[in-house]
Write a protein that binds this DNA or RNA. Structure first.
Lengths: 143, 143
DNA sequence: CTTTTTTCTGCAACCTGGTTGCAAAGAAGT
DNA sequence: ACTTCTTTGCAACCAGGTTGCAGAAAAAAG
C-alpha cells in the first residue's frame, strides 16, 4: 500500500501520521491474520518496542486497529476494515489453533448476536473458537 | 458445600483431593461470578499463590474449572457445572463491564454456534460481550 | 509401625508481555 | 533562527503468571 494512501486513511480516523506510524500500519497490510505486539517487534526491527506499543495504542483509540483476545497472553491486532465509523458489534469471529498457536480471521462468518438482559449495554463483542486449524489437522491425520 | 461432597466431585473428575484443593474449590462455591487468580489469593490467605496456581491448573486440566478470558490481563475461572463429561461448546456467554471491571456470567444465554468452514475442528468457544453492566449504568444515568 | 517412595506445598526467584519516565530528536508554528 | 509541542528510544519498572527446589505430608511397601 502506498504511503500517501495510508496517510489519508489515518487522517480520516483522526490520527496524525508519522514515519513510524506508517511503518506500523504498513506492517499490517499484506498480512491477513492478526498480529501480536511481539510479532510487530520482529517485523519492525528499526523501531523500539515502546514506540510500536504507543503507535498501536493510538491506533486502537482511533479505531484504526481492533484488538483480538484469543485467550493467549498476547493480544493480537488487525486493521479495522471500515473507512471511518466502525460498528464494533458487527465483526467477524476468530479461530485460535491450539496446535500451532496461530489466530485466524474467519472474515465470512460474522458474530451471531444475542439478546442481552435488560439494561446491559453492549459495546463490543468477542467470539473466539479454539481448536485445530485445517493445516494442523491434516498433519495430525497423516500420522 | 460439605467437604466430602467436594471430594466426591473431584474424584468424579479424576482429581485427587487434598486439603488445599478443597479450599480452592470451596472458594468458588457461593461466589457466582468468575474469579481471577489474584482474587483467589486474597480469598485464601493461608495458601501460597503458586499452590493456588497449581491447583487451578490441575482443575482446568480435568474440567473441574473453566477459564474465561474477558479481555483483561487476568484470566478468570468458574466451576464447570456438569458433573462428569463437559461439552465445552455448550456454554453460556459472559459480560465484561468496562466501568467496574467485573465479569458476569449470563447463565441463561448460551453461546450461539456458527458453521465453521470445512476442516476447522472446534474444541471450545468463548463469547464475551463488553460494555456497561446494569449497576454501573444506573449510576451513570443518575448524574 | 517403620521405611521407602511419591506427591504436594511454600518460598524465592524468574520470565514474559506490557507500560511509563525521561531526556534527546524531530516537526511545526512564529 | 527560535520557541513550542510532539514523537521517539532507552532503560527501568510492573504485574501476572510460572518454575526449581527442598522440606513436609501422604501413600505405598516392607
Amino acid at each position: 500500500m502506498k504511503n500517501n494512501e495510508i496517510v489519508e486513511r489515518l487522517k480520516a480516523k483522526g490520527v496524525h501520521a508519522t514515519a513510524n506510524r506508517l511503518l506500523v500500519y504498513d506492517a499490517f497490510t499484506g498480512l491477513h491474520n492478526p498480529v501480536s505486539l511481539s510479532a510487530l517487534e520482529t517485523l519492525l526491527p528499526t523501531m523500539d518496542k515502546s514506540s510500536i506499543f504507543r503507535a498501536v495504542r493510538l491506533f486502537l483509540k482511533h479505531d484504526v486497529l481492533h484488538a483480538i483476545d484469543d485467550g493467549t497472553k498476547q493480544v493480537k491486532y488487525e486493521i479495522c476494515p471500515s473507512q471511518n465509523e466502525c460498528d464494533a458489534t458487527q465483526r467477524h469471529i476468530h479461530f485460535y489453533c491450539e496446535r500451532c498457536g496461530q489466530t485466524f480471521c474467519l472474515d465470512d462468518i460474522s458474530i451471531p448476536t444475542v439478546e442481552l438482559p435488560e439494561s446491559y449495554a453492549a459495546h463490543s463483542i468477542n467470539y473466539i473458537v479454539k481448536g485445530t486449524c485445517p493445516s494442523c489437522r491434516s498433519k495430525a491425520l497423516q500420522k
